[in-house]
Measured scan of single mutants.
Amino acid sequence: MEQGTVKWFNAEKGSGFIERENGDDVFVHFSAIQGDGFKSLDEGQAVTFDVEEGQRGPQAANVQKA
């Protein structure tokens, strides 16, 4: 798993970007967020995640709040 920080997340659209510790920013969709309840992330929040190849390039998967 990688570690990173939420660069921004739009709760209305359900997507945003995570700033990786090593590498380019990666797209995140709300469906990749693990946990119960409303799936959203806050700017500056620390997260851990896997990276998968999506239709438009790398994207975060199995996102967990650190």
Rank of each mutant, 00 (worst) to 15 (best):
M1G: 12
M1I: 11
M1S: 14
M1A: 14
M1E: 09
M1T: 13
E2R: 09
E2I: 13
E2V: 12
E2H: 15
E2K: 09
Q3N: 12
Q3E: 09
Q3G: 07
Q3F: 14
Q3M: 13
Q3W: 15
G4A: 01
G4V: 00
G4L: 00
G4Y: 00
T5C: 15
T5I: 14
T5L: 10
T5S: 07
V6P: 04
V6S: 01
V6A: 01
V6F: 00
K7D: 06
K7F: 01
K7N: 04
W8V: 04
W8G: 05
W8F: 08
W8E: 04
W8H: 05
F9R: 02
F9E: 06
N10W: 08
N10E: 07
N10A: 05
N10P: 06
A11L: 08
A11C: 15
A11K: 15
A11M: 10
A11H: 13
A11S: 11
E12A: 14
E12G: 10
E12T: 12
E12W: 12
K13H: 12
K13I: 13
K13G: 07
K13Q: 10
G14L: 04
G14Y: 01
S15F: 15
S15A: 12
S15G: 07
S15Q: 15
S15D: 05
S15V: 15
G16C: 05
G16L: 01
G16F: 03
F17Q: 05
F17I: 10
F17K: 03
F17E: 04
F17S: 04
I18L: 08
I18M: 01
I18S: 01
I18F: 00
I18P: 01
E19T: 15
E19V: 14
E19G: 10
R20E: 02
R20N: 05
R20C: 07
E21P: 12
E21C: 15
E21G: 09
E21L: 12
E21K: 13
N22T: 10
N22S: 11
N22Y: 11
N22C: 13
G23N: 06
D24T: 14
D24N: 12
D24L: 12
D24G: 13
D25R: 09
D25G: 07
D25C: 15
D25K: 09
D25A: 08
D25E: 09
V26S: 02
V26I: 13
V26W: 03
V26E: 00
F27C: 06
F27V: 02
F27W: 09
F27H: 03
V28M: 05
V28K: 01
V28D: 05
V28G: 04
V28N: 02
H29D: 07
H29S: 04
H29T: 00
F30R: 09
F30H: 08
F30D: 06
S31W: 06
A32Y: 03
A32R: 02
A32E: 07
A32P: 05
I33R: 00
I33E: 04
I33P: 03
I33H: 00
I33K: 00
I33D: 04
Q34P: 06
Q34E: 10
Q34A: 11
Q34S: 11
Q34L: 14
Q34D: 08
G35N: 06
G35D: 08
D36V: 12
D36H: 12
G37F: 06
G37K: 03
F38H: 08
F38D: 08
F38I: 08
F38V: 07
F38R: 06
F38Q: 06
S40A: 08
S40F: 12
S40D: 05
L41V: 03
L41W: 03
L41E: 03
L41Q: 02
L41S: 02
D42P: 07
E43T: 14
E43Y: 14
E43L: 12
E43W: 14
E43R: 15
E43K: 15
G44L: 02
G44W: 03
Q45N: 06
Q45F: 04
Q45M: 11
Q45G: 05
Q45S: 08
A46W: 14
A46C: 15
A46V: 13
A46I: 13
A46R: 14
A46G: 08
V47W: 00
V47T: 02
V47F: 00
T48F: 13
T48Q: 09
T48E: 07
T48I: 12
F49T: 02
F49A: 02
F49Y: 05
F49H: 02
F49I: 01
D50W: 14
D50M: 13
E52K: 11
E52P: 00
E53F: 14
E53P: 10
E53D: 11
E53Y: 14
E53W: 15
G54W: 03
G54E: 04
G54C: 09
G54V: 05
Q55Y: 13
Q55E: 13
Q55H: 13
Q55S: 12
Q55N: 11
R56M: 10
R56L: 11
G57P: 07
G57R: 06
G57Y: 06
G57T: 04
G57H: 05
P58K: 10
P58D: 05
P58G: 04
P58M: 11
Q59S: 07
Q59A: 07
A60I: 01
A60R: 01
A60Y: 02
A60C: 03
A61P: 01
A61E: 04
A61D: 02
A61C: 11
N62G: 04
N62S: 05
N62P: 01
N62M: 04
V63E: 02
V63Q: 01
V63D: 03
V63L: 05
K65S: 09
K65R: 11
K65F: 10
K65L: 13
A66W: 09
A66Y: 10
A66C: 12
A66M: 14
A66S: 12
A66I: 15
A66R: 12
